[in-house]
Amino acid sequence: MPIPKTRWDIFCTVVDNYGDIGVTWRLARQLIAEHGLAVRLWVDDLRAFERICPEIDIHLAQQSQQGVEVRHWPSDWPQTEAADVVIAAFACQLPSAYMDAMAERQQPPLWMNLDYLSAEDWVTGCHGLPSVKYKSVQKFFFFPGFQPGTGGLLRENGLLERRRRFQQDAAAQRQFLHGLGVDRAADAQLISLFAYENAGLASWLDALAADSTPTHLLVPEGRILGDVARWLGVDALAVGDLDVRQALTVQVLPFVRQDQYDQLLWCCDFNAVRGEDSFVRAQWAGRPMLWHIYQQDEDIHLDKLDAFLALYTKGLSPAAAEAMSGLWRAWSAGKPIGEHWLQVRKHWPELQENAEQWCLEQGLQADLATALVQFYLNWI
């Protein structure tokens, strides 16, 4: 059944620096490029948006970027006609005037709460269920996820094939890294590090520096830079800085746009990522990874971490699963991970194979944008 020409509104309040806007920006572009929809993306923080899309003019209330109508979400809400489909990303609260506009439509819109990504068992039972109702407008839960019965993950058409070709093209990788000022250290494993502040970092850097295998650590601008600087014994780090300590080369990269970040992940042998957007993109890289989950009150984030680990390590031997789980749990608790890293290295070929297999298995499911469109088609 073809989808009729419809207007979709996506609302995003920036809470976690770049994860919220990263997800909604990818989604908006994909809905336009692959499904031919008209999409408005309402964002309350254009400065955060500018970091991942430098073309954004932070002073404009309305602009067009890559086919997406980008609107600044002001505190003084303008009179606006509600769209056919309304997505409140990550449970953000819509403006009351906009909710009234939804209720005033002759045909109420489909209103969905696009929730946070989780591998917890209860997600499949709640996905697609009705939520609250505002006057005549019913809201529905929509959960991204890793298992059938969820909304899947953001994945553009042809992404895995582009990744495969890039990872098989050594010249393309060298050219990309050269554009970032990276001359890969001889025989070094390449690791990317994008994380929140973490007290456990120093022990990992100690292990990498003392290792017999050289490591070239690429650190994009971000919150972890302060911890890296302290380990190096310097006051601060800036883009372009490069420091060598025994077997470890540390290099600071600029904050790159989304497509470049994908290629960075594809180049690396191991990726440390954070939040939600980079977490999903690291899975599509098909390489071993480490996730710094966003911390929540009462440590409920650890339940999400364990739920994902149970799925991600299911195909590993008990020893490899234990090593990977120990590394992830220690990292998200801010504990030393040097010894955990040494255990992980003992199972490297198995972990590489598992990462690729996990990627391919997830690629068999419907992607998030397609699942949203199908939900709309079923609704109408």
Rank of each mutant, 00 (worst) to 15 (best):
W77F: 12
P78S: 00
P78W: 01
E81P: 15
E81D: 14
D84C: 00
V85M: 06
V86H: 11
I87G: 06
A91Y: 15
A91E: 14
L94S: 04
P95R: 00
P95E: 06
S96V: 13
A97N: 08
Y98E: 01
D100K: 06
D100Q: 14
D100N: 10
E104V: 13
E104I: 10
E104K: 13
R105C: 10
Q107T: 15
P108A: 03
L110C: 09
M112G: 01
M112R: 04
M112L: 14
N113W: 11
L114W: 13
Y116K: 08
Y116P: 13
S118A: 05
A119D: 15
A119K: 13
E120G: 01
T124C: 03
C126R: 15
H127F: 04
G128H: 11
G128M: 09
S131M: 05
V132E: 14
V132H: 09
S136I: 13
S136N: 15
Q138V: 07
K139I: 04
F140E: 00
F140H: 04
F141R: 06
F146I: 08
Q147M: 02
T150M: 06
T150E: 09
G151S: 01
N157M: 05
G158F: 06
L160H: 05
E161M: 09
R163Q: 13
R163P: 09
Q167I: 03
Q168H: 08
Q168C: 03
A170E: 14
A170C: 06
A171G: 07
R174Y: 03
F176D: 08
L177K: 00
H178I: 08
H178F: 12
G181K: 04
G181W: 13
V182F: 08
R184N: 01
R184V: 10
L190V: 13
L190W: 12
I191W: 15
S192C: 03
A195D: 13
A195C: 12
Y196S: 06
Y196I: 05
E197W: 03
N198D: 11
N198A: 04
G200C: 05
S203G: 05
W204M: 09
D206W: 10
D206M: 04
